[in-house]
């Protein structure tokens, strides 16, 4: 390209904001289109396909895979999944908020504490979940301590119970609750708390009337960041919960692997996605109402 042609092309590009936007969107957009949208459409197609007698999907249209969710077995899985995700979110909030608050007020320790929160991400989640098995099994560290301290005489069953799944989920997702709450608390203008104090507010009122409302965006973001992946988690329930604690993620995984029922696996995936969409819609409602109030 000659200099003038190149310049002309650059001028054309710089005077067209839409061309610039397209240039910026293209790489990520194409990636998502090819590796997210296309597979999603394929899966949606699969979820409506009938199966032949060997279990393979064949062209056609049926709603039978979705209708199977009326079966009490699957209703139980859906309810269990939702309640685990909700409980996990609530526990993460209960443990995470004070933690985030302490870090935000941590002064010179702040960066070190944040580093500790992020530290677990240096190891794979799978490895960490295996480590939890060693902690929670009958001959694990937790039972050893409980027996040595004389709290219990016999090892108590922790592993393969709902408690184990919940411990694993909360452990895994806690950082996703702490970080957004921390970031909204860290931005909190300290002079607002001083203003409240001069106006007569003691510590509990200052927290309830100023700190908490102003950190709500962080709480909501954290709740979503925990709730959505908790809904779709399968590793934790698989390793720590055993067969009895099946969540919808495990169902999807089984259908695509051992059960070789791709259409039903696809339908289960879309059922999961529906749950996520409901959560996001509730979030958007809450946010809009808050913005309307603001």
């Amino acid at each position: 390209m000659s200099t003038t042609a190149r310049q002309r092309w650059l001028t054309w590009f710089h005077t067209r904001p839409s061309a610039q936007a397209a240039g910026l969107l293209a790489p990520g957009g194409i990636w998502l289109l090819w590796f997210f949208v296309v597979p999603l459409v394929v899966m949606l197609g699969y979820s409506f396909m009938p199966r032949n007698q060997f279990g393979g999907a064949v062209p056609g249209f049926t709603l039978e895979h979705y209708q199977r969710f009326a079966d009490p077995v699957y209703v139980t899985i859906l309810v269990r999944t939702t309640s685990y995700a909700l409980t996990c979110t609530a526990l993460c909030l209960v443990f995470g908020y004070p933690l985030a608050y302490a870090i935000a007020r941590g002064g010179r320790w702040r960066n070190f504490l944040l580093f500790l929160i992020v530290l677990p991400f240096w190891t794979s989640f799978l490895v960490r979940t295996f480590a939890m098995i060693f902690l929670m099994r009958d001959t694990g560290l937790v039972n050893d301590w409980l027996i040595q301290l004389g709290v219990v005489a016999e090892p108590i069953q922790i592993l393969y119970t709902p408690t184990a799944v919940m411990i694993g989920l909360v452990y895994g997702f806690l950082p996703f609750m702490v970080l957004p709450i921390y970031s909204s608390l860290e931005k909190l203008d300290m002079s607002l708390l001083e203003a409240a104090e001069v106006l007569g507010a003691r510590a509990p009122s200052r927290f309830l009337r100023v700190t908490l409302p102003l950190s709500m965006p962080g709480v909501i973001a954290g709740a979503l960041l925990v709730f959505i992946p908790a809904l779709g988690s399968f590793l934790t329930s698989d390793l720590l919960g055993g067969a009895k604690q099946m969540m919808i993620g495990n169902l999807v995984q089984n259908q695509f692997t051992t059960a070789r029922n791709w259409p039903f696996g696809s339908a289960a995936s879309f059922a999961l996605m529906t749950l996520v969409l409901i959560a996001v819609m509730i979030y958007l409602q809450v946010r809009d109402r808050e913005e309307a109030a603001a």
Binding site: S191, A195, V210, L214
Partner: peptide
Amino acid sequence: AMVFQNYALFPH
């Protein structure tokens, strides 16, 4: 009572 430099009004 006090008036602050940046006013410190409660934004919410």
